[in-house]
Nucleic acid binder design. Sequence first.
DNA 1: CGTTTGACGGTCC
DNA 2: CGGACCGCCAAAC
Length: 110
Amino acid sequence: MSKEQPTFFFKVYNIVRQVPRGRVTTYGAVANYLELGSARMVGWAMNKSFSSEKPVPAHRVVNREGRLTGKNHFAHPNMMQELLENEGIVIVKDKVQNFAKVFWNPSQEL
DNA sequence: CGTTTGACGGTCC
DNA sequence: CGGACCGCCAAAC
């Protein structure tokens, strides 16, 4: 049993797991919602998310540009795109199309 | 315990 | 439009 409880990591996982299917969020949005003050922490948490027991849809988290910056950290660089496309999200050149439409803001939706 | 790093964001040039 | 640099903050070394 892991110990991710008193950490933002756990919070980040929780938020990301609440992202509805067919939507994406950004590191900055999550960081802002959790008041982390730094989007980097979210990315850091995502890296550790692979050590988490529960599956974290990290593929639903993109950067401010809607670009799949973390795709390189998946099992396969194109897996992230496939997962997103599987949810109905259109990806072109590793960038989310209609980003404003598929963007899910925790501070707004939650 | 000091230094480096990192899946970001924003500004500057 | 793209490349470079700074700021944030915690974990890893």
